[in-house]
Nucleic acid binder design. Sequence first.
RNA 1: GCGCUCUUAGCUCAACUGGAUAGAGCAUUUGACUUCGAAUCAAAAGGUUGGGGGUUCGAGUCCCUCAGAGCGCACCA
Length: 578
Amino acid sequence: MNIYKIYFNHTIEILDKFKLDSNYNFDNTEILKKITLEPPKNTINGDMSTNLAMLLSKNLKLNPKEIANKLKPYISKLPNVLTVDIAGPGFINITLKQKTWSDCIKKILLDPDNWDKQDLGKGKRINLEYISANPTGPLHAGHARGAVFGDALASLLNEVGYKVIREYYINDAGSQIEKLVESSLIRYDECNGKNIKEIPVGLYPGEYLQEVGKALLKKYGKNLKQNSKEDIFNLVREVSLEVIMKMIKEDLYKLGIEMDVFTSEHNIISGNLLTDILTILEEKNLTYFGFLDPPKGVDPTKWERREQFLFKSTVYGDETDRALKKSDGSWTYFATDMAYHLDKINRTNGDLINVLGADHTGYISRINAAVNALSNGSISIDTKVCALVNLMENGKPIKMSKRAGNFVTLSDIIDAVGKDVIRFIMLTRRNDQSLDFDFKKVMEKSKENPVFYVQYAHARCNSIFKSAEILEENLHIENTDLLSGKDEIELIKFISQWPRTLELAAKNHEPHRICYYLIELSSMFHSLWNKGKDNFNFKFIVEKDIKLTNARLLLVKAVALTIRKGLSILKIKPIFEM
RNA sequence: GCGCUCUUAGCUCAACUGGAUAGAGCAUUUGACUUCGAAUCAAAAGGUUGGGGGUUCGAGUCCCUCAGAGCGCACCA
C-alpha cells in the first residue's frame, strides 16, 4: 500500500480526463514520463505535490498557475482530499484529511508483513556480480565496502520482486596464479622443514599461505615434487585455490554474505565461450587485425607499434578499440571477461549489475561495449563503483602497507566491531563517494554513530511496551483516529513513505537510501519521545486513557516494525535492549 | 598530455535524478532528567552548492569553460 503511488495514479487519470474535457490536443507521452507526485520537502506545502500544471504549460502555452486552477476541481474530487493549494511556480499541493493518515496505521498493522510489498521486478532475473576479489589471499578491509554494498543491493532488489543471482567471479587464471603457486610451493617447503628465508619480491609473502603449505603436505606427503612440473603446478594450484577460497567464503559468511554462484575464469577459458564470442563478433564484423594509436601520455620510446587482434568497442562508445589476443596468440583478460559476460547473459536471461572498486572505472566502457555487442543491446548492464574506504583510528588514518604485512583484513574488522556495524556504516555514504571508517567512532554509543542511534530508537520502542506491560502483538488495532497530534501525524506520513523509499532505492540501485531513511525515522521517534518529557500529555502511555495509550502504542509498533524492515534488508539484527 | 569520477555550512555527509526558502550530524552558544531509557531532545548561529558562463517557467542536479582532488591510460589481472 503505497499511498503516494495511489495518488500518482489518480493524477494520471486526471491528465486524461482533463485532456478530454478541455478539448486540448497534445501529445502527453513526454508529460507521462516527467509527471511526479511527491511528498514536498517542506511540510507546509501539504502532503503531496504534483508538477502536472508546470508540465502542461509548455504544450498549452498557458501560465502554469492558470492551468493549475483549471486542474484544481479535478483534484479536489479525489478521495480524502481536504485542501488543494496552488503554490510557487505552479505546484499543486494536496492536503489529505487527517483521518486518512491515522487510517494508514491501521492498514499497516493489519498487514504488517506485506503492506509495503511492491512488485517492481515482476520476477525478472538480475545477475549481480560483486566482490570477485582475487583468490590470492584473504579479503582485506577494502573489500568490505563492495561486499556490503553488493549484498545490500541484492537483498533490496529481491525485496521488490527481482530474482537476484549473487555472483562471484574467481580470477583463477593468468600470471598471478603462477605466482601464487610459486609462493605456495615455498610454504610447502617450509612445512617440510626447510628454512625458507625471505619470500622473493613479486611473490605473495603473506603468512596465510602456510595454510596452503600444510594442506599440500597433508594431501600429498613429502614427495609432491617428484611429480612432473605440470602435475605439480596443477596440484598446487588446485589446493591453493581451495584453501584460499575457503578463507574468503568464511570471511564472507562472517559478514552475513552467501553467494549463489562462483564462476571460475579458468573454466571460462577452457570452455567454448571464447569461440562463441568470436562467432558473434565476427558475424557482426566487429573484429579486425590492426594497429592502435599510442595513448597520448605514453613514453614514445617504450611504445612498440604492433599488429593486434582487436574488438571494435569504439562502435559502442568506447574511446579506443580493445585487444582480444596477446602476441603469443593467447586470449587477453578482456577477451575472457567478455566471454564471462556472455556466460552471465546466457545463464541470467536478464540484466546485469557489476560492483567494482574505484580503481576499475576505466574498465567500464569496454565492458558496456562488450555486453552491448553480445546481447544486441537487449541486456542492460549497470556498473556501480565503490569508492575508497579510509580506515581511521580516532580521526587519524591507519597506515597500511602490504609489503610490511600490516594490512587490515576483513576478518580483523569484523572481529573488532561486528558485522552489523560494518554493514550499516558502509552504507552511510553514497557508493561513489569515499568513506571514512573510524574504528573508534563506529563503536561509540552516541548519536554520532548512526547504527547505535537507530538501534537505540528500536530498543526504546520495545522499552515502551515493557513499561506498558503489554506485548506488541497483543495490541488491538483500533482507535487509530485518536492519533491526532501534529508530530504523530508527521511520523505516520513518514512511515507511509517507506514503500517509496524502497522503490527509489531499488530503482536507482542505491541501498544507502535505506540507511538515511532509518536515521531520519529514528530521529523523528526520539523527538516525539522527548515531547513527553516537556509535556505529560505527549507521553505514549497515558495512565487514565487506555484507548489513547493503545492508539499511541500502535504508532510505536509501526515505528519498530519499519525499523526492523529496513534493518532486515540490510541483514542487520534489531536490538531490543541496549 | 588524454579520459573517467568527484568538489555542497568550520568538519563529516544528505538532497526523492530538473522542483518551492539547499537539509542533517559533529563542533560552537543556550536550554530540558522526582515522570515511558538524557546513550536522548529543543533552540540559536552557520551557505554566492569550487569560480565563471549557458540551456528554461525553475539548475547543487543538464551543457561549456577554468581551478583543485582521486582513479585509470597498448598483450597485466
